[in-house]
């Protein structure tokens, strides 16, 4: 009986691990390829380079066409961190009003906010582009960060609203008795307690803006302003295999921050998905 149970547990682990190995194979292959010479990359299934080389990375850091990968990394960081700050601040403010304050249009505005969650951005893209073009902001980071400062990611407003609503209402009463107005209640009571939702918002905003491609493709035109996804895109047009090494190295560098975030915050990430149905 126990023997068969032990065997079944072993089989379960074996199946899980085998599937996991297959699933993660492309990523491991990518990392190993970044240390291979270009001619070995395309066709070699092997996860161990025949000869480990670091020249792919040095090539990327020296830079193609005079621009080092540091520049792209910095640009990506500016966009992502700007988005994080914008989203956390603006979504928290809006969520507090929806969850804790009373005002006449609350029902209507809340319904509208929910309605925008599923709206395809494509229907906004062209007028938004026209606006930013008129303002002379195309080819700057503003079109990527400004919308976050204005809480256009309604999903996160909703996420924080749900969290704030679940806070015990006695806290609000106590604060009021102590003479706190809505602003103090927000600053001293609600905001500190909402930290987990804000962290979830920050992590997902970072990863989503880090991965974002379409809006960066549209708004950033000169190579000096390129983010990592756009720099990687330059490799698409090159059909020669000689650039594969640099491409793999830059891909690894692009995925690295996401990987680090994943290891640091995996509980937050997975719980965030499980409880909110968020689509990573």
């Amino acid at each position: 009986m126990t023997a068969s149970r032990g065997w079944r547990r072993f089989a379960w682990h074996a199946v899980c691990l085998a599937m996991l190995a297959a699933l993660l194979y492309p990523i491991v292959w990518l990392v190993s390829s970044s240390f291979k010479p270009a001619n070995e990359i395309l066709s070699s299934l092997s996860l161990l380079p025949q000869k480990v080389i670091g020249s792919n990375y040095s090539e990327v850091f020296e830079g193609a066409a005079g621009i080092s990968v540091w520049r792209f990394l910095t640009n990506s960081l500016i966009v992502s961190l700007g988005s994080v700050l914008g989203n956390v601040a603006s979504c928290a403010l809006a969520a507090y009003a929806f969850a804790w304050l009373r005002f006449r249009l609350r029902g209507v505005l809340f319904a509208f906010m929910i309605g925008t969650i599923m709206l395809p951005i494509h229907v906004l893209l062209i007028p938004q582009y026209t606006i930013f073009q008129r303002l002379g902001l195309v080819d700057t980071f503003w079109p990527l960060v400004l919308p976050k400062l204005l809480a256009t990611d309604a999903f996160f407003v909703f996420l924080i609203v749900q969290f704030m609503r679940a806070l015990p209402r006695e806290l609000g009463d106590a604060a009021r008795i102590d003479g706190c107005g809505p602003v103090q209640t927000f600053r001293h009571i609600v905001l500190p307690l909402t930290k987990p939702a804000l962290v979830t918002t920050a992590i997902f905003t970072f990863i989503w803006s880090w991965n974002d491609f379409l809006s960066q493709l549209i708004y950033l035109n000169t190579p000096d302003n390129y983010t990592l996804p756009l720099a990687l895109r330059l490799f698409i047009d090159q059909t020669s295999q000689t650039s594969y090494g640099a491409m793999m190295a830059m891909s690894v560098l692009t995925l690295l921050p996401i990987g680090l975030f994943f290891f640091a915050f995996q509980r937050f990430l997975v719980e965030g998905v499980a409880t909110t149905g968020m689509n990573g």
Partner: peptide
């Protein structure tokens, strides 16, 4: 998390 990236 990784799959949305251009890199992948």
């Amino acid at each position: 998390l990784l799959g949305a990236s251009v890199a992948v």
